[in-house]
């Protein structure tokens, strides 16, 4: 009975959603002069950054990114509080995935390559697809592989928290330095450089590297916490 009611409600909801979105059109230019054109033009003419998504995330909407990184930090702290345990011992896991020697040797071989890929992605965030969030998540994946393959592999929580705090403070300090020339928060104060060079875009590359460190530390800490939860 309840299921039929739910299906009825969802059918009405789906009909109205579809009616609303089918009128929007797919693959058409909807605005003659929208905010998209402003962003695209400023990105290439003033900031000299190749990837427009990076320039929106870090520069035009950089304050939102600061808030987002804070939300991620709060989520990790909340998890640490919920899954609180007196002491972590290395190898004291709640779940044990027993691994064979092939998995161990293979993950030892793959680990430096995964870390290198993550670092490459967040250093080249303003030139190619990718950036701090993607690179940080890939680095966390590398640590996850090692944590699963080796029972006594452990990461130091102090080191993680230092990396995380310094990256966050650096982000805010660079943002505040934008006030120097009478600009706004996160204003670009370094020379913009040439399009498609590694040192271009001023502060955007530096900030995205900091975001990469912060996200990598947070996600690694999150996985470490949930893997060591035990009564």
């Amino acid at each position: 009975m309840k299921k039929f009611l739910v299906i009825l409600i969802l059918a009405v909801l789906g009909f109205h959603l579809f009616a609303a979105f089918s009128g929007l059109g797919f693959g058409v230019t909807r605005f003659e002069k929208g905010v998209k054109d402003f962003y695209l033009e400023k990105t290439v003419s003033e900031l000299h950054v190749a990837n427009t998504v990076t320039s929106i995330v870090v520069n035009f909407r950089g304050f939102d990114t600061l808030g987002e990184v804070t939300v991620l930090f709060l989520a990790v702290s909340a998890m640490g509080g919920i899954l609180y345990k007196r002491r972590h011992h290395a190898g004291d896991r709640s779940v044990l995935f027993s691994s064979s020697s092939i998995v161990r040797s293979g993950s030892k071989l793959l680990f430096p390559a995964i870390i290198l890929l993550g670092v490459y992605i967040f250093i080249h965030g303003h030139l190619s697809p990718g950036g701090g969030f993607q690179g940080g998540a890939i680095i966390a994946t590398g640590f996850l592989l090692m944590l699963i393959a080796y029972e006594n592999f452990s990461v130091s929580h102090n080191t993680l928290s230092y990396i995380e705090s310094f990256a966050g403070i650096f982000f805010v300090v660079i943002g505040l330095l934008g006030f120097m020339n009478g600009g706004t928060f996160l204003q670009n104060f370094l020379p913009a450089g040439i399009l498609n060079n590694l040192f271009s875009g001023g502060v955007i590359g530096i900030i995205y590297v900091m975001v990469g460190f912060k996200v990598a530390a947070e996600l690694t800490g999150l996985i470490y916490t949930i893997l060591h939860e035990k009564d």
Binding site: I121, A137, A140, T141, L144
Partner: peptide
């Protein structure tokens, strides 16, 4: 890239 790293793996 984000979906591949976060949605699939983590």
């Amino acid at each position: 890239l984000t979906e591949a790293a976060i949605g699939v793996a983590l």
